[in-house]
Design a protein around this nucleic acid. Structure first.
Lengths: 106, 106
DNA sequence: ACCTCACATTTACGATTATCGATATATGGA
DNA sequence: TCCATATATCGATAATCGTAAATGTGAGGT
């Protein structure tokens, strides 16, 4: 419970780059192969590969190899995991008895 | 619509640090003053101030000055904004007709 | 076997970020 | 007014991140 923050921060790092958000936006329309992402983004091939690696490591995106091409898409479990994360960040306190209106002056 | 990614990435950067997630976790229990956060986190005072500045700039946290102390809490509009963001990242495509099962092989 | 295509990985470097110590700016009380 | 407390800001340094060139890999065609 203590180092979960590190793991969660790791996942959020996948989202805090402009290019990766753009890639996720493209993948919302459905599965796309790397070459298609490459021409829609204005970046180099190695750079795209770097970002796809980070997105896949976060678990939100999965790659499916078909012959020479790799097809990327947003994973179903990735969607769920992200929703749970947001609850942990901006959700309300889990239990009502955890001093919700605590007097914080020392 | 084009540079929204930059703005969104900016907001996510508030969440991709271990200490800031820990602070948000503490604030879930209710409003807390800086000195209380300082003793619960194991970091220096200037470092805490640095993180609070970033969290406030993202709009998720608000600071309320009361005398010598500043009390921080998660803002209601911050909660909503984060939920909208997550929808934009991991939600499904907005319209059914945007080629959901597009054949992506070139 | 060889070659090419389509990516992935390695490596290096500049830019950004986190951290801390020191200093500065409030705020309230004597 | 001066002093003490609570944050903020300003250095400087170390770590991390994004980018691209070079290299590696694995599949398919000749």
């Amino acid at each position: 419970m203590e180092t979960d923050f590190r793991r969660n921060a790791e996942i959020f790092k996948a989202f805090c780059d402009e290019n990766r958000l753009k890639i996720l936006g493209l993948l919302r329309g459905g599965e796309k192969c790397a070459c298609k992402l490459l021409e829609e983004m204005g970046i180099g091939q190695s750079t795209l590969s770097h970002h796809m690696r980070i997105l896949c490591a976060s678990g939100v995106v999965v790659g499916r190899r078909e012959g020479k091409w790799v097809h990327y898409s947003i994973s179903e479990e990735g969607r769920e995991r992200v929703k749970g994360l947001i609850e942990q960040v901006a959700g309300r306190a889990p239990k009502g008895g955890e001093a919700p209106v605590e007097e914080s002056r020392p």
